[in-house]
Design a protein around this nucleic acid. Structure first.
Lengths: 344, 344
DNA sequence: AGCCCCTGATGAACCGGTAAAGCTCCGATG
DNA sequence: CATCGGAGCTTTACCGGTTCATCAGGGGCT
């Protein structure tokens, strides 16, 4: 016995206000064609009846959708720990809210799954456009999604996103800053614990790391790839610290792995920062909660998301949008980095 | 010069297959009325043309929507660190995906905002129903949302959710288990760092904490309220450890605050677990990354989300759904809890 | 007075599906 | 052999909006 759910439609409002459907539509969309008096009467009636235009009907008629899609392809257990995404989403939403647009979120298990999902979303017109994240080198999504006309904004360096309008952070420059900072502190054996090599931005950071180290005349070969999880960060750190010539500084690709690294150092009795400096990436609140607090490469993830959303709206509006970087991550030194221990 | 975007509609498919719109609709919805041969021909044509039914049109016609809403009212910075939500969402989505239903996610700044949002979502039929989370005592959402016919499932103890079908974890029992465990280890001065008192489940845990302590003849007054953030967890821990008679064990309301507590203990030179035992809540991966690793009250958040989604579908289907608990969190002892130090 | 134009409104067509009623043909039945 | 029933489609009427052509009425101009 579900409630009758008295559906109020535009017709009811029109009847109650003594005008035609068309007039109600004009009034609600703030278009000319109705007098101020009529408009107000219509609004009053609509409020009284608790009416709001049915979004399916509006979409159908207008041939447009007020929703955008975001599919994230990482295990949920990992995502929960990545402060990045929620912050990023919140940035997107800050822009969506202004335009009363909604975010369709989906966690997918593979890029193939994402391809199918995005195709479906677009064919069924469930979304007006999509945000694509986590680009790989030769990303398999580019071909299938490039051709179908889906308006999209890519998050990632233009070298990865195959001509899609993109927003990215200049990770190469940030990596260089991180390395130079550690070198200035006297570190010579610097390691890096990165994300999966297939992931575009990990590769970019890896390359920048090697290059910067080489430029400074140091050995840049000391970097490990992980799957971004804390556990893998811990394992990587453990193996680095067990090496015969262990590094005096480690740069991580996210906060979680840095926290894990800190745990491993403590477990192995390696003093941070006296014997080992650690540098995190993203700089979530987590970095301020550990002891010692974690130095980090910090950036405005919220603003990043907002920028992406704004650009997507432009793309949907049919504008020709140039790719552009957002502000480069910058170093926030805290207690986990210190001058290198005297060579021993 | 946006692409012409040749919109393929059911009419095109019908024409190409040499049948009527109706036949295509029947075929695609797996309803009787078309022969097997025709059905296959229609599918072949649809695949070739890359057609999928327009979701707005379908919603409009069917008077139903294949999306559900979730609004979360916590600061984004905090959410990112709460592994709970992503895991919860992923649980919801595991069920939605089976029914090709989408999740509309919104981060809101206040419960008032959520009320407006949910009302709009429902009036505009953007969602078929909603998941309501983070119930407060005398929650302001109950009145405005109860009356409008929005199908909803509440996450929270029935005492908080005003007659809405609910799913909840038996926090009271879990708190009791936590306390008894610590007491069994010899702890007598046990503190609790909880969430905001207004939040229903915090209140329930607080009450259960006091009651259990009282039952055991101990002082249950030692609990602090926070806003769930790591920083507040750190502050609370600091104040507890500075007290004249400091606790020998602390129970936290989430993982992040426990991690922060661990940081504070280290900073103050209080040995964990020798001088102080810490117990986290939720048991995300984070608990295994610190040193020492964190004992925690663990539960299946993914399954929790799935359960909620399943129930919401039943509600939307018009069934009369009984509220029910999911499995009670259970203790996972790790390295942060140990026998109480000898009284001194 | 006759004409034009502008404002404020109406009515019908349309968006792309679904659903129910209607129509055809065919084999089975009395 | 007329009749009935059902399988297999088609037709048509919605769903609840938007949009556009049309129209009535009133004021200003010649």
């Amino acid at each position: 016995m579900s409630a009758p759910t008295e559906r109020v439609t535009i017709k009811d409002v029109a009847a109650a206000a003594g005008v035609s459907k068309g007039a109600v539509s004009l009034a609600f969309n703030h278009k000319p064609g109705v007098s101020e008096a009529t408009r107000e009467r219509i609004f009053a009636v609509a409020r009284e009846l608790g009416w709001a235009p049915n979004s399916s009907a509006r979409s159908l008629s207008r041939q447009s959708v007020d929703a955008i899609g975001l599919a994230i392809c990482r295990p949920a257990r990992l995502l929960g720990l990545e402060p990045f995404y929620m912050e990023f989403i919140s940035g997107i939403e800050s822009v969506l809210a202004e335009r009363s647009c909604s975010l369709l979120l989906r966690l997918v298990g593979s890029l193939e799954e994402e391809i199918h999902l995005q195709q479906r979303w677009w064919r069924e017109r469930q979304v007006g456009g999509s945000v694509l994240v986590d680009f790989h080198q030769d990303d398999p999504r580019l071909d299938p999604l490039g051709g179908i006309g889906l308006p999209a904004v890519a998050v990632g360096h233009p070298s990865l996103t195959g001509g899609l309008p993109s927003v990215w952070t200049d990770d190469a420059t940030a990596v260089a800053e991180a390395v130079r900072y550690l070198v200035a502190l006297g570190h010579r054996r610097i390691a890096r614990v990165g994300g999966p090599a297939g992931l575009g931005h990990s590769a970019i950071r890896a390359a920048a790391f090697e290059r910067t180290m080489a430029d400074l005349g140091l050995d840049g070969g000391l970097h490990l790839e992980t799957g971004f999880s804390g556990e893998e960060g811990a394992r990587a750190t453990r193996s680095l610290l067990l090496a015969s010539e262990r590094p005096t500084a480690i740069v991580y690709d996210n906060d979680i792995m840095a926290v894990a690294g800190l745990g491993v150092a403590a477990e192995m009795g390696v003093a941070v920062p006296d014997e080992l400096s650690l540098l995190a990436w993203d700089d979530s609140q987590l970095c301020r909660l550990t002891h010692p607090t974690l130095s980090a490469m910090s950036h405005d993830v919220h603003g990043f998301g907002a920028q992406v959303a704004r650009m997507l709206f432009d793309v949907i509006a049919g504008q020709d949008v140039p790719s552009r970087p957002v502000t480069t991550p910058s170093l926030v030194p805290r207690a986990s980095t210190a001058p290198a221990p005297p060579a021993g």
